[in-house]
Amino acid sequence: MKLKALLPARPYGESGWIGRALTSGVAIAVLATARPAQNWVWGVLVTCFVVFVVGSFLMTSRQYVAFGLLTAAAIGGALVCGVDSSNSLVLVLVSMTDIAVLQFPRHSNRPVIAASTCVAAAYAVSAWLFERPDSWYFTQLLWTAVLVAFGLNRRQYEVQARQTEQLLEQTRLAQSEHARAAALEERGRIARDLHDVLAHSLGALSVQLEVAEALLEERGDTAGALDRVRRSRRLAVQGLTEARSAVAALRADEVPELPAALAALAEQHEHDHGTAVRLSVVGEEGRGLDSGVSVALLGAAREALTNAAKHAPGQPVEVQLAYQDGVRVSVRNKGVTTGEGFGLEGMRERLALVGGTLTAGADGDDWLVVAAVE
């Protein structure tokens, strides 16, 4: 987004109205002390002052009209500067100051140069008509140059102030986008956490209910089916407990140590599915793992075990935690588990957030899932 599009154009500063009122007051005060010898000079002074006031108050709405009026007022004042006690220099100075403040993006300082050239020529005409010395001419030029420089400085200040406002607005928009991105990332993390818990618990629950249904329909084994229903009830209660634990983790509660958490997960899976799960730990943890890394690796192991129970029921599973070149958790089950769902994709996203990777695929006659964080 371009800076110019962030805020509306503002050709004159907020203090412009006050400044213009003050300069008009100063011009009136100085002109009130004028005592020109020729009466016609009063007509020029009054006309130039009215033109100056109109041009000054059109600066915010009609820049080019204001420029033309202010230039006319400055030239008119410069033409009668040579008249004794005309005090018309004040009209030239305030008009040139306002011209210098005006901003013309397409023409830069060309309007100021053009107006200054016309005023310098008008000074020369006035010096020739009213027989003023060269020193007088250069004095008028000096005063005009000083006020033009003041106006240009004021314009630069306004440009910088406006750019600062635009930069602040851009910063505010960037912060807003950052907050939105953070919210989306948090929503994704919560979705992954809920999937970890629900997929594991509901998957195990589904398996137990299928077995119970098969026992009833095929064998009429009421006792066996009842045992499976009781297991299903325990799984439902356990799933609720895990859901509460996930909420506690989202609230930044302490995360259990990875080896203990994997051991509990393996024991739970073995108990729920009647499948042998062998857990091994290779190497020693060199430093404490970040909670995000532990949660990501534990989630990957849970998802792999859920897939193993779903696609290769009854087959033994090997879980290995290795502290070599970082930390790696691998889950191997007998029988190829084909296909990938949202679970493994979610694990990849979670591991990517902590600088890790996840691979899943056939390894001979086995299915191997490896989650690693360097």
Rank of each mutant, 00 (worst) to 15 (best):
V331P: 03
A309Q: 05
E349Y: 04
G339T: 08
A312R: 15
E284W: 03
T337Y: 02
V94D: 03
K334H: 14
V101T: 07
L209I: 13
G355K: 02
D84A: 14
V83Q: 06
L142V: 11
V92H: 02
S86W: 00
G274A: 12
H200R: 12
R231I: 04
K2S: 13
L167T: 15
Y157V: 13
A32I: 08
G299S: 12
V80I: 10
R172F: 04
A100Q: 04
E213T: 13
A249G: 09
L353D: 11
A199N: 10
H200K: 06
L265R: 09
I99L: 09
G299Y: 00
Q140E: 12
G77V: 01
V281W: 02
R302I: 07
M347S: 09
L152I: 14
A27L: 06
G203R: 00
S206W: 05
S126Y: 01
V373N: 02
L141I: 09
P133Y: 04
N39S: 15
L147V: 12
H271D: 10
L344I: 13
G13R: 09
E218Y: 14
V317Y: 01
E349G: 02
T306H: 05
V317G: 01
A309F: 03
R244V: 12
G25P: 04
A149S: 14
R172W: 05
D196T: 08
G299H: 01
L129D: 07
